[in-house]
Amino acid sequence: MDQKVLILNQDFTALALCSIQKAFVLLYLEKAELVHKSESAILRTISKIYPAPSIIRLQRYVHVPYKGISLSRHNVMKRDQYQCLYCGSTKNLTLDHLVPKSRGGNSSWTNLATACMRCNTKKGDRTPEEAGLTLKQKPKKPSLTAFLAAHAGNFDQNWEVYLRVKEK
Rank of each mutant, 00 (worst) to 15 (best):
M1G: 12
K4T: 03
K4R: 13
K4G: 06
V5M: 04
L6D: 02
L8V: 03
N9Q: 07
Q10S: 09
D11K: 13
F12V: 03
F12S: 13
T13K: 06
A14K: 02
A14I: 02
L15G: 00
A16W: 11
A16Y: 10
C18Y: 01
K22P: 00
A23P: 04
F24R: 06
V25M: 07
L27I: 09
Y28H: 14
L29G: 00
L29T: 14
E30L: 03
K31G: 08
V35Q: 03
V35D: 03
H36G: 01
S38F: 01
S38M: 02
E39N: 14
E39I: 13
S40P: 00
I42G: 00
I42L: 09
I42H: 04
L43C: 10
R44G: 00
T45S: 15
I46L: 12
I46T: 12
S47P: 00
K48H: 15
I49A: 11
Y50P: 00
P51Y: 06
A52K: 02
A52C: 09
A52R: 04
P53L: 04
S54W: 03
S54M: 06
I56W: 07
I56S: 05
R57A: 07
L58C: 07
Q59Y: 00
Q59S: 10
R60L: 12
Y61E: 13
H63P: 03
H63I: 10
K67W: 14
S70R: 14
S70Y: 13
S70V: 12
S70F: 13
H74I: 11
H74G: 04
N75W: 03
V76T: 05
V76G: 02
M77P: 02
K78S: 13
D80E: 13
D80G: 10
C84P: 09
Y86I: 13
C87E: 14
T90R: 15
K91M: 09
N92K: 14
L93Y: 06
L93C: 07
T94W: 02
L95P: 02
D96K: 03
D96P: 03
D96N: 13
H97V: 11
V99E: 13
P100Q: 11
P100T: 07
S102A: 15
S102Y: 08
G105P: 08
G105W: 10
S107I: 03
T110C: 07
T110V: 15
N111S: 08
L112E: 01
A115V: 07
A115C: 13
A115G: 07
C116F: 06
C116P: 06
R118W: 11
R118E: 15
C119T: 09
C119Q: 09
N120I: 10
T121V: 14
T121G: 01
K123G: 07
K123F: 08
G124Q: 12
D125N: 15
T127P: 03
P128C: 11
A131W: 06
A131H: 04
G132Q: 11
L133S: 11
T134F: 10
T134M: 11
L135S: 09
K136M: 15
K136Y: 00
Q137T: 14
K138P: 00
K138F: 04
P142G: 08
P142D: 09
L144G: 02
T145Y: 06
A146L: 13
A146Q: 11
A146F: 04
L148F: 05
A149G: 15
H151F: 14
H151D: 04
A152L: 05
A152P: 01
G153R: 01
N154L: 05
N154F: 06
N158P: 00
E160D: 05
V161H: 09
Y162R: 08
L163F: 08
K166R: 14
